[in-house]
Computed example of a mutant assay.
Amino acid sequence: MANKFYLLSSQGIKVEIKEYDGLSVHFSGENSEICIGEGSVFRNVSIEVGNDALVEIGKTNAQGIRNSMIRLVGNGGGEVSEFW
């Protein structure tokens, strides 16, 4: 199954995207999903996921997420449902 990178609108609609300002995304496995809340702010943030991972980040505040790396590359994937 393919990897997916989505923007989640305020109405709850997922729209597949290829990039997001301030955010670097790398899929090193298969069957993973990254979903970002519409209006989120990122500055120098990197997300790397392996197999069967799920990353969901709701809309950030105005300060956003800065200078961070999220890695989910272990066996069996992982899940981040809240990040602050």
Rank of each mutant, 00 (worst) to 15 (best):
S81V: 12
L8G: 00
M1H: 09
A62R: 03
G29L: 05
I65R: 03
I47L: 07
S28D: 09
E79S: 13
I34Y: 06
I47P: 11
N51F: 04
E79G: 14
N51D: 15
E56K: 14
L54A: 11
Y6E: 00
E16A: 05
V45M: 08
A53Q: 08
F42R: 06
G39C: 03
K14C: 09
G64T: 06
G39D: 03
Q63F: 09
E30A: 12
M1D: 10
D52Q: 11
Y6S: 01
N51Y: 06
I65K: 02
N31I: 04
E56Y: 13
K18S: 14
K14E: 13
G58I: 03
G77N: 09
D21E: 15
E16V: 01
G64Y: 02
F5N: 02
C35K: 13
N51T: 02
S32N: 12
V25K: 03
S32W: 06
F27T: 09
K18Q: 12
M69T: 15
S46P: 00
L23C: 07
E19A: 15
R71Y: 06
I57F: 06
I70Y: 09
G76I: 13
G64K: 04
M1W: 08
G76D: 03
M69F: 14
I65Y: 01
K4P: 09
V25A: 05
F83L: 15
V49C: 04
R71Q: 14
K4L: 10
E48L: 06
F42L: 05
G77E: 03
G76Y: 06
D21P: 09
V80D: 06
R43N: 11
D52H: 10
S9K: 10
S40C: 05
S32G: 11
L54V: 10
N44E: 11
V41Q: 10
I57W: 04
G37C: 04
E82T: 14
F5E: 07
G64V: 07
C35R: 15
G29E: 06
E82V: 13
M69P: 01
G22I: 11
A62T: 08
G64L: 03
K18Y: 08
G58T: 09
V80T: 09
E56V: 12
A53N: 08
G78R: 01
G64W: 09
W84I: 12
N44D: 15
G37Q: 02
V55L: 11
K14H: 11
Q11A: 15
I57V: 14
F5V: 11
Q11I: 03
N61F: 00
V45S: 06
V49L: 06
L23E: 02
V80H: 04
N3E: 11
E19F: 08
I65W: 03
L54R: 12
G74P: 12
S46K: 15
S24L: 12
S46R: 15
S32R: 07
K18P: 01
V49E: 01
N67K: 12
Q63P: 00
N44I: 05
D52S: 13
G58Y: 04
